[in-house]
Simulated scan of single mutants.
Amino acid sequence: MASIESARATFDKFDVNGDGFITADEYSAAMKAMGDAYVTGAVADAVLAAKDANGDGLLSFDEFWAALNK
């Protein structure tokens, strides 16, 4: 299990605009920056949809934290 501090730091790296949510575009860009060039828009949409508990198309920190602790 990740510590909440390290999870917050990782979340903040993905949340480029600092609005408190990760979009599919932010997720895809972050993954590409970490060397995973295969995360297309469709893949990012699917990953977010799987973890997006309230269905708003965005990943909040609470949803991110919950996904890490499953």
Rank of each mutant, 00 (worst) to 15 (best):
N54Q: 11
S60G: 11
A53M: 10
A49E: 13
A33M: 03
F61G: 05
F64I: 03
D56P: 11
D62Q: 12
D56H: 04
A9C: 10
M1P: 13
D36A: 04
A66E: 07
D62F: 07
D25H: 13
G57P: 07
I22P: 00
A29G: 03
A30I: 10
N17A: 08
L58M: 12
R8P: 06
L58F: 10
F11I: 03
A53P: 07
M31L: 04
F64A: 05
V16K: 15
T40E: 02
T23G: 03
E5T: 12
A42S: 13
N54W: 12
F14G: 02
G20S: 09
A53K: 13
M34D: 04
A29R: 08
D15F: 00
D12Y: 08
G57M: 10
T23A: 04
G55I: 01
W65F: 15
A24W: 00
D36Q: 10
G41T: 08
F21A: 04
S6G: 04
A37V: 03
D62M: 05
G18L: 01
A46G: 11
I22Q: 00
G41S: 06
Y27P: 01
F11N: 01
D56Y: 10
S60L: 05
A53L: 14
Y38N: 11
G20P: 02
D45I: 09
A42Q: 15
M31W: 00
S28T: 07
N54D: 15
D15R: 00
F21L: 07
A53Y: 08
A30Y: 08
S28L: 04
E63D: 12
A7F: 03
M34E: 06
A24L: 02
M1A: 15
D12M: 14
E63F: 04
L58A: 02
K70T: 11
D52T: 03
D52N: 05
A50Q: 14
A30D: 09
A30K: 11
G57T: 06
E5P: 05
A37P: 12
A44S: 06
T23N: 01
G55V: 02
A49H: 12
G57D: 10
N69E: 14
A46R: 13
A2I: 13
T40G: 02
A7I: 05
D19S: 05
A53D: 14
A33Q: 03
K32L: 06
A66Q: 13
D15K: 01
T40K: 02
D45C: 11
A42M: 07
K13W: 10
V16T: 14
L68H: 07
L58C: 05
F14I: 06
A46N: 14
F11S: 01
G18F: 04
N54A: 12
A66K: 13
M31R: 06
D56N: 09
